[in-house]
Amino acid sequence: MILFFGTRPGKKETKVLTRATCPYCNQTGTLTVVAQPNYAHLFWIPLFTINNIRYAECSHCKKVYYKEDFTPEMEQALLK
């Protein structure tokens, strides 16, 4: 019997942080947060989430901030 087991990325979710300021270029409203889960699957059916990748990118200076680099202002804007 052959089992197909592996991992696969899920659907990307994006959210623009209109009230957050980029710490690098000081532009307001240019940060976009992207969240993408990774699933373990069996026969191409997702079973459970392994991890969730989250990062923010500034559309002005193109700097990327990973979850551990988020400022308190970014976290607050993400909750709204």
Rank of each mutant, 00 (worst) to 15 (best):
residue 7 T to P: 00
residue 35 A to G: 03
residue 51 N to W: 15
residue 76 Q to T: 14
residue 34 V to N: 12
residue 38 N to F: 00
residue 25 C to D: 06
residue 21 T to G: 00
residue 79 L to K: 15
residue 38 N to Q: 12
residue 51 N to V: 04
residue 73 E to K: 11
residue 1 M to Q: 02
residue 46 P to M: 11
residue 5 F to H: 09
residue 35 A to D: 00
residue 80 K to R: 15
residue 57 E to W: 01
residue 28 T to Q: 14
residue 29 G to D: 01
residue 28 T to N: 02
residue 64 V to G: 12
residue 70 F to K: 09
residue 45 I to N: 01
residue 7 T to S: 01
residue 54 R to S: 08
residue 75 E to F: 06
residue 56 A to M: 04
residue 15 K to H: 06
residue 43 F to Q: 08
residue 12 K to W: 03
residue 55 Y to S: 12
residue 39 Y to F: 14
residue 19 R to K: 15
residue 44 W to D: 02
residue 64 V to W: 06
residue 77 A to Y: 12
residue 74 M to Y: 07
residue 80 K to D: 15
residue 24 Y to G: 11
residue 52 N to D: 06
residue 1 M to D: 06
residue 3 L to M: 08
residue 77 A to V: 02
residue 31 L to Q: 15
residue 41 H to G: 02
residue 46 P to R: 02
residue 11 K to G: 01
residue 26 N to E: 10
residue 12 K to E: 10
residue 60 H to L: 12
residue 4 F to A: 10
residue 63 K to W: 09
residue 50 I to R: 11
residue 8 R to L: 03
residue 14 T to K: 14
residue 4 F to G: 01
residue 19 R to L: 13
residue 48 F to P: 04
residue 6 G to H: 05
residue 14 T to M: 05
residue 1 M to R: 04
residue 5 F to E: 04
residue 80 K to H: 14
residue 58 C to F: 08
residue 43 F to A: 06
residue 11 K to C: 05
residue 55 Y to K: 11
residue 60 H to N: 14
residue 49 T to P: 04
residue 49 T to W: 02
residue 77 A to W: 04
residue 72 P to V: 01
residue 55 Y to L: 07
residue 12 K to Y: 03
residue 46 P to I: 04
residue 62 K to M: 13
residue 62 K to H: 14
residue 45 I to K: 01
residue 9 P to F: 00
residue 41 H to V: 04
residue 51 N to P: 03
residue 44 W to E: 03
residue 10 G to H: 01
residue 57 E to Q: 14
residue 67 K to A: 13
residue 54 R to W: 10
residue 13 E to T: 05
residue 53 I to V: 07
residue 71 T to A: 07
residue 13 E to W: 12
residue 74 M to L: 03
residue 61 C to A: 13
residue 33 V to A: 11
residue 30 T to D: 00
residue 25 C to N: 09
residue 44 W to Y: 14
residue 13 E to V: 05
residue 56 A to Y: 04
residue 29 G to N: 05
residue 49 T to G: 10
residue 66 Y to Q: 14
residue 76 Q to K: 15
residue 79 L to N: 15
residue 17 L to K: 11
residue 59 S to W: 06
residue 40 A to E: 13
residue 24 Y to K: 12
residue 44 W to K: 08
residue 69 D to R: 05
residue 14 T to I: 11
residue 33 V to T: 15
residue 13 E to L: 10
residue 74 M to F: 08
residue 47 L to F: 13
residue 31 L to T: 07
residue 16 V to N: 13
residue 78 L to M: 09
residue 51 N to Y: 14
residue 7 T to D: 08
residue 26 N to G: 01
residue 78 L to Q: 11
residue 38 N to W: 10
